[in-house]
Amino acid sequence: MKNVTISDVAKHAGVSKSTISQYLNGRYEYMSEHTRKKVEYSIRELNYRPNIIARSLSQKSTFTVGIIVANILHSFSTHIIRAIELNFNKNGFHTIVCNADDEPEKERQYIEMLMAKQVDGMIIFPTGDNLDLYEQMKKKKYPIVFMDRTIEGLGIPSILLENEQAAEVAVKALTDNGHSRIAILTAPITRNITPRLERIEGYKKALVSRGIQVRDEYIHSVEVEEMKVSLRNMFELDQRPEAIIAGSDRVLVEILNFAKEHQLVIPKDLAVIGIDDVSFANLFTPQLTTISQPTTKMANKAVELLLQQIKGEQKLSKTIRFGGQLNMRQSH
Rank of each mutant, 00 (worst) to 15 (best):
K37L: 10
R36V: 09
E29R: 03
R27S: 13
E29H: 08
E29M: 03
T35S: 15
L24H: 09
E45N: 12
S32A: 07
Y23R: 11
L46M: 12
N47F: 02
Y41I: 00
K38P: 04
I43R: 14
R49H: 13
Y48A: 06
K38C: 03
R27Q: 15
Y23H: 13
H34M: 14
Y30C: 00
Y23N: 09
L46C: 08
E33R: 09
E33G: 08
T35A: 15
Y30K: 06
S32L: 04
S42M: 07
G26A: 06
E33N: 15
M31G: 09
Y23D: 09
E40F: 07
E45R: 10
K37W: 00
Y28F: 15
E29K: 05
Q22F: 11
Y41T: 04
E33V: 14
R36C: 10
R36H: 04
E45Q: 14
G26Y: 06
R44A: 02
P50F: 01
L24F: 09
E29P: 06
N47E: 09
R44T: 00
L46S: 07
K38V: 05
Y41R: 01
R44I: 00
Y48H: 10
H34S: 15
E40M: 05
E33Y: 14
I43G: 12
V39G: 09
R49Q: 11
N25C: 05
L24A: 08
Y48K: 11
M31R: 07
P50H: 05
Y41L: 00
N25Y: 04
G26E: 07
Y48G: 08
R44H: 09
I43C: 10
G26H: 09
N47A: 08
E45T: 11
N25E: 04
E29N: 08
K37T: 08
Q22H: 10
S32E: 06
E45P: 03
R49E: 09
M31S: 11
T35P: 04
N47K: 12
Y48F: 15
R44W: 00
V39T: 07
K37A: 12
E40W: 07
Y23F: 15
Y30P: 05
K38W: 02
E33P: 12
E40Y: 11
M31A: 12
R49S: 10
R36I: 11
Q22G: 05
H34I: 15
E40C: 03
G26L: 06
N51S: 01
E45M: 12
N51R: 01
R44P: 10
N25F: 03
R36N: 08
R44M: 02
R49A: 03
Y30H: 04
R27M: 10
R44D: 10
Y41C: 00
S32W: 02
V39R: 03
I43V: 14
P50W: 04
S32V: 00
R44G: 13
N51C: 04
N51I: 02
V39D: 03
N25G: 08
T35I: 15
V39W: 06
K38Q: 12
Y23S: 12
Y48M: 08
V39Q: 07
P50G: 01
P50R: 04
G26P: 06
T35D: 12
I43A: 13
N47Q: 13
N51G: 01
